[in-house]
């Protein structure tokens, strides 16, 4: 009757470690929200930034929010994707928005 004690103790230890990590995470989030976040928000406000500086290889990956709405594959229809980051960005739900627009135009025509 030793093995189950070892297993239960090991599982408890893992749960304690995970809880400590999550508590550390919570404390870090709270500290950064108080200290770093206002300064970063100040940068966004004053420099009028709209995007994160993550992917600098192309216009539509550096500023995805400012790029054409049909990005990725923006260079010409059915062009192959040039940059790996382009495949990270999910395409817009073009079909539903096209349907909506079509409905609007139909309504106008009638």
């Amino acid at each position: 009757m030793v093995k189950h004690k070892i297993f239960l103790s090991f599982s408890l230890l893992e749960i304690i470690v995970l809880s400590i990590l999550f508590l550390y995470g919570h404390a870090t989030v709270t500290a950064r929200s108080k200290n770093e976040m206002p300064s970063k928000k100040e940068l966004v406000r004053y420099l009028k930034l709209t995007d994160l500086s993550l992917w600098t290889e192309a216009r539509y990956t550096r500023h995805p929010s400012q790029a054409d709405i049909f990005t990725p594959f923006q260079d010409f229809p059915s062009s192959p994707e040039h940059f790996p980051a382009g495949s990270i960005i999910a395409p817009e739900n073009i079909i539903s928005s096209t349907k909506k627009q079509a409905g609007r135009f139909q309504g106008q025509a009638l």
């Binding site: 550390y24 995470g25 993550l54 992917w55 600098t56 940059f83």
Partner: peptide
């Protein structure tokens, strides 16, 4: 490396542990 793609300048950021 997966996120970085072809970016030459990729930020050396510290991730905030939002869970």
């Amino acid at each position: 490396p997966v996120i970085k793609g072809w970016s030459v300048l990729f930020p050396d950021f510290r991730l905030t542990p939002y869970i």
